[in-house]
C-alpha cells in the first residue's frame, strides 16, 4: 500500500480481518522460511545466513582436550614482538572473524598484512607495526581444569 493510502482515520475498536488470499500468502511465506531454516540447520553452515544453523557454541570441547584461542602478535618498530588485541577497533576484524578464516590466512599469509594496514588506518597515532603474526594458543584441559598452554604460529607477515 502506498504511504498516501495509509489510514488516517481516528482509531477504532474492532477486529480487522484478512482476506483468504492474504492469509494464504502469509502462511506460505512463514512455511517456506521455517522449512529453509530447518534445511539450513541440518545441511547448511554459517555462510547460508539467514537460513544457516544456529551453531553458537555447538561444538564439543573434550574435558581433557584443548581450547583454541587465536592471538595476534605485532612487531614494533624496534623489532620486538608484542601481543596486540585481536579486536575490530584495532585491526578491523575481531578474533572470531579471524578464527573463521584460518585456512585463508594459512594459504595467503599476506592477509596478515591487511590486519597491519587496518591498524595503520584505525590507530594512526600508535607506532606503525613492522609485521604481525597470528598465533594459535592451546589452553590444555585435564578433567575440565586448565593445566597449561601451548602456542603455534599460524601465519606471519613482515613489512
Amino acid at each position: 500500500m502506498p504511504p498516501s493510502a495509509e489510514p488516517t482515520d481516528p482509531p477504532v475498536a474492532g477486529r480487522a480481518s484478512l482476506s483468504a488470499r492474504a492469509r494464504g500468502l502469509r502462511l506460505v511465506a512463514a512455511g517456506i522460511c521455517v522449512a529453509l531454516l530447518c534445511v539450513g540447520t541440518f545441511w547448511g553452515d554459517d555462510d547460508a545466513f539467514p537460513f544457516g544453523p544456529f551453531r553458537m557454541y555447538s561444538t564439543s570441547t573434550p574435558p581433557n582436550g584443548n581450547i583454541h584461542v587465536m592471538t595476534l602478535q605485532a612487531r614494533m618498530p624496534d623489532g620486538s614482538w608484542r601481543e596486540a588485541p585481536l579486536d575490530a577497533p584495532i585491526v578491523g576484524v575481531n578474533r572470531a572473524e579471524v578464527e573463521g578464516q584460518i585456512p585463508r590466512f594459512q594459504a595467503d599469509p599476506a592477509l596478515v598484512g591487511k590486519l597491519v594496514e587496518a591498524h595503520d588506518r584505525l590507530r594512526p597515532a600508535e607506532p606503525r607495526w613492522t609485521g604481525a603474526r597470528l598465533v594459535m594458543r592451546y589452553l590444555k584441559l585435564r578433567d575440565r581444569r586448565f593445566v597449561g598452554t601451548e602456542e603455534k604460529v599460524v601465519a606471519q607477515w613482515l613489512r
Binding site: P53, T61, P62, P63, R144
Partner: peptide, 15 residues
C-alpha cells in the same frame, strides 16, 4: 549435529 550427543558432557562452557 556439530558437537554430537557428547556435547552435554563436553567442556564447551569451560571453553
Amino acid at each position: 549435529r556439530f558437537g554430537g550427543v557428547e556435547w552435554v558432557n563436553s567442556a564447551t562452557l569451560v571453553r
